[in-house]
Write a protein that binds this DNA or RNA. Structure first.
Length: 781
RNA sequence: UGGGGGAUCGUCUAGCGGUAGGACGACGGGCUCUGGACCCGUUAGCGGGGGUUCGAAUCCUCCUCCCCCAGCCA
């Protein structure tokens, strides 16, 4: 099966979603033979984690289905694009772990696109408009008013051809003319109101130089580029949903022309772009951050750009895992930063060796340890739960640094670190006790005088295990390093929705620089090693600023910290969502205001036994009413109405019901006679709607008959009960929803032919008996 | 107000007429020389009303709320 259809059978890179469903269907139905996707960035900015989501989707799909994904630069706007960005984008995609099948540029298609524009003009489907941009905008109308045709809309083909040629030849100033598609100025879809296809721009393009002074717009270039490349599934974000109409229009009008195949043609699908809490992901805003001095550049580790994340130390695996965890859907959403951080931690947990560093040092003197003596302790890189080998030596001496946070003179309840007189374990070393707190002139704690217990290396002290373990470094041996602690860039979850400028919400503590002390073993390691500084977080040397002469560490992500979290509990910071309106309940409108005529009709139907809800629908929808009218001649109006409204409604409304009123009557007759049940009827109707075969014929051909013989059904029920003792127990324990499990099982085994009421009764009697409603598992209505 | 989309635990996401499941989080417990990791458990959800059905997150219907569209940007 999979060799025939390319449908993945083993682990997928992309979790199943609505797009993979479409692909599966296209493959099964033979619409396409090979999956070809594309990632189409415009080279006018850097890639961010939202793009990464799209990259993982497009490239992942190609990988999953044995297809291809192209990298295509949508470079149709010479004024904003630059080669610098294409290089950066390529590097980012590669770094994320993906290889494109072909590297392509929309600008390489300029000649062919131009040809297609000419073809549209020849076909009377496009015209040169000499309105200014203001005029075009004014003539476009509004969402409530249709647009008005430009006086230039009916120029002759010859005149349009001539003007377009002269546009290309550079005879006109920028903005003097545009080429527009002739579609529909009164379309309710604003995008279809004669969209602009080409504009005059006298600017050098970073790839085509001055070869062109007319440039296609996104809508024109994008879909046709897809078609030119043989893209099978063109995946973009939700805001392009309306643009799909242009996409389809263009392809329908140009397929089979200008070298475009008649079929297959690409189709566009839209998914929800990523929104991440406490950051912004719009190109315009990222440019402002990077170039407006809010951060130190595109690759500032606080930036959600791929280059920023890379410099921060996040791995491509973590980003891909994150993309996987958030999934792909059509609902606008905002992802909790915690999901991202968890993906990063999970990745680093098994790849980062543990070392010790102190970032807010407090001097500790071990009074009973000889000055000048150094003990080299062996310390494993990995905790017991990470199955990896390796260790380093850590020097222990009389003077150490510990974390200031790890000592408290007046500890709160539950604090099990160092306290006056109390013992604590020094990680990988001895248990010490604090004997004296030494203060400086200002009263600040300057150092701690402690004593160590020499018998506690690798074993518990005499009094039993100590409750706390803290990290430390030897003062004389530690390497000094600049440590950059990064935090969320904004202090509100959705800076874009907040009032005022988004930059008003920058988090002043997004970067904290401290002087830290790192155990000396790191000096021996390769420069790109990612560590866990125990109890602090994951860190790695900054790839730009760190070097042999100057150590600089970035904190990639902090460790989970259930201690401080628990302490901050009361009055903890809840999410403040500025401007988030909550959908509450408000008085529902009845929507049942009828005209007198409708009222009369409603009453007439009600008198015939048609239900209230059905009658209301029928009164409002003449098409359904007419259908029922015809059907009613042959049978029970009330029963038929139910099927007309609830099952055939959409088909009748669309005018393509392949089931005639008479056929429906016949089917309903079978139900009423008990020959078939509603379930069978529903399946049959679905098939009839699909194929056009008369429902009753389907019933006959398949020999569908309802099974109302308890002698047939009972054994099946008994067997299901015998096979699922756990379910039976749960049911008897009160999980009555399990009735559906048993009924469903019987229905499945009989292919929907069992009399459901009978099954329901049998199941209820055998399982529940007294605990249930008399003789029936039906909830009281 | 026209058109196009959308709504499932706090967050993200499965479900396609038959037990509402997973991840992140939260809470409780276990383990621990990292208050990490790991393990166990708990919590919590189908936007609302009506209808169809033996049975509805799923089908029908009405309503509500949210997002997108009036660039010669993409």
């Amino acid at each position: 099966m999979s060799s025939e259809t390319n449908i993945p059978t083993r682990e997928r890179r992309v979790n199943p979603n609505f797009i993979t469903e479409i692909i599966d269907e296209d493959l099964r139905g033979g619409r396409v033979a090979k999956i070809v996707t594309r990632f189409p960035p415009e080279p006018n900015g850097y890639l961010h984690i939202g793009h990464a989501k799209s990259i993982c989707l497009n490239f992942g799909l190609a990988l999953d289905y044995g297809g291809e994904c192209n990298l295509r630069f949508d470079d149709t706007n010479p004024e904003t694009e630059d080669i610098e960005y294409v290089e950066a984008i390529k590097a980012d995609v590669l770094w994320l772990g993906f290889q494109w099948a072909r590297e392509l540029y929309a600008s390489d298609y300029f000649e062919r696109l131009h040809e297609m524009a000419v073809q549209l003009i020849r076909d009377g489907k496009a015209y040169v408009d000499s309105h200014t941009d203001e005029e075009i905008s004014a003539y476009r109308g509004t969402v409530n008013e249709p647009g008005t045709p430009s006086p230039y809309r009916d120029r002759s083909v010859e005149e349009n051809l001539d003007l377009f040629a002269r546009m290309r030849a550079g005879e006109f100033a920028g903005g003097a003319h545009v080429l527009r598609a002739r579609i529909d100025l009164s379309s309710p879809n604003m995008k279809l109101r004669d969209p602009v296809l080409y504009r005059i721009v006298h600017a050098s393009h970073y790839r085509t130089g001055d070869a062109w002074c007319i440039y296609p717009l996104y809508d024109f270039a994008h879909g046709l580029s897809d078609a030119l490349e043989g893209i099978s599934h063109s995946i973009c974000t939700l805001e392009f949903e309306n643009n799909r109409a242009i996409y389809d229009w263009l392809l329908e009008n140009l397929r089979g022309k200008c070298g475009l195949p008649e079929s297959p043609r690409p189709y566009q699908y839209e998914f929800a772009r990523l929104n991440l809490d406490y950051t912004v992901l719009s190109k315009r805003k990222l440019i402002k951050l990077a170039e407006g001095g809010c951060v130190k550049g595109w690759d500032d580790p606080r930036m959600p750009t791929v280059s920023g994340l890379r410099r921060r130390g996040v791995t491509p695996e973590a980003i891909r895992e994150f993309a996987n965890r958030i999934g792909v859907a059509k609902a606008n959403s905002r992802v909790d930063l915690g999901i991202f951080e968890a993906a990063v931690r999970d990745d680093l947990n098994y790849r980062a060796p543990r070392v010790m560093a102190v970032i807010r040092p407090l001097r500790v003197v071990i009074a009973n340890y000889p000055a000048g003596k150094v003990h080299h302790l062996d310390a494993p890189y990995w905790p017991h739960d990470v199955p990896r080998e390796g260790s380093r030596t850590v020097p222990f001496s009389r003077e150490l640094y510990i974390e200031r946070d790890d000592f408290m003179e007046e500890p709160p309840k539950g604090f099990h670190r160092l306290i006056p007189g109390g013992p604590v374990r020094l990680r990988h070393a001895y248990v010490i006790r604090c004997d004296e707190v030494v203060r400086d002139a200002s009263g600040e704690i300057a150092e701690l005088r402690c004593t160590y217990d020499p018998d506690t290396l690798g074993r518990h002290p005499a009094g039993g295990p100590v409750k706390g373990t803290i990290h430390w470094v030897s003062a004389a041996h530690a390497a000094r390093a600049e440590v950059r602690l990064y935090d969320r860039l904004f202090h509100v979850p959705d800076p874009e929705a907040a009032a005022g400028e988004f930059t008003d919400y920058l988090n002043p503590e997004s970067l904290t620089v401290v002087e830290g002390y790192i155990e000396p073993s790191v000096l021996q390691d390769p420069p790109c090693t990612r560590y866990q500084f125990e109890r602090l977080g994951y860190f790695w040397p900054d790839p730009v600023d760190s070097g042999p002469g100057r150590l600089v560490f970035n904190r990639i992500v902090a460790l989970r910290d259930s201690w401080t979290k628990a302490r901050e509990k009361p009055g903890g910071s809840a999410k403040v969502q500025p401007g988030a309106a909550q959908g509450g309940e408000s008085k529902p409108k009845t929507g049942t205001e009828f005209t007198p005529k409708q009222q009369a009709e409603h009453a007439r139907l009600a008198a015939l036994g048609v239900g209230e809800a059905e009658a209301t629908v029928l009164v409002r929808e003449p098409r359904l009413a007419a259908y029922l009218e015809e059907a009613a001649r042959g049978g029970d109006v009330a029963a038929i109405a139910i099927w007309v409204v609830n099952e055939l409604g959409p088909a009748i409304r669309a005018g393509d019901s392949k089931v005639s009123p008479i056929q429906l009557v016949a089917l309903v007759g079978l139900i009423q006679a008990g020959t078939i049940n509603g379930r069978i009827a529903k399946d049959v109707l679905a098939e009839a709607l699909e194929t056009g075969t008369a429902p009753v014929e389907i019933v006959e051909a398949k020999g569908l008959r309802q099974i109302s013989d308890a002698g047939v059904i009972e054994p099946i029920v008994d067997r299901l009960i015998a096979e699922n003792p756990d379910k039976v127990r749960a049911f008897r324990g009160g999980k009555t929803a399990l009735a559906g499990f048993f009924v469903g099982g019987v229905m499945r085994e009989t292919q929907g032919r069992a009399n459901p009421q009978l099954v329901q009764d049998l199941v209820a009697r055998k399982l529940g008996g007294n605990t249930f409603y008399e003789g029936s598992a039906v909830k009281p209505r």
